[in-house]
Simulated assay, not measured.
Amino acid sequence: MPWSKNDYPASLKNLPADVRNKAIEIGNALLDEGYEEGRAIAIATDRAHKSEEGTETDKTEYHVKPHDDGWQLIKEGSSRAIMVEDTKGDLLSKAKDYVTDHSGTLVIHKQDGSVEQELYDQ
Rank of each mutant, 00 (worst) to 15 (best):
H49A: 08
A42S: 12
I41T: 06
S51W: 04
E53Y: 04
D58I: 09
E56G: 09
D46C: 13
E56A: 13
Y62L: 04
R39C: 10
A29C: 00
T57V: 14
I43P: 03
L30G: 07
D32Q: 12
T45Q: 12
H49T: 08
A48W: 09
L30D: 02
D46L: 15
G38F: 05
T60I: 03
R39G: 05
A48H: 04
T55E: 04
G34N: 01
S51D: 07
G27K: 04
H49R: 14
K50M: 14
E36T: 08
K59F: 09
S51P: 03
R39K: 15
E53Q: 13
D58G: 06
A48F: 02
T57S: 12
T45D: 11
G38K: 07
I43E: 02
H49D: 07
K59P: 07
E33S: 07
D46V: 14
E61D: 11
A48K: 00
A40E: 06
I26L: 10
Y35I: 10
I43A: 05
K59Y: 14
A42Y: 06
A40Y: 01
A44H: 06
E37Q: 02
R39D: 05
G38Q: 10
E36A: 13
E61W: 00
A42G: 11
T57L: 13
D32A: 14
Y35N: 06
A48R: 06
A29Q: 10
K59Q: 15
N28Y: 03
K59N: 15
I43G: 09
A29R: 06
A44W: 10
A42C: 03
I41E: 09
T60F: 02
E33V: 03
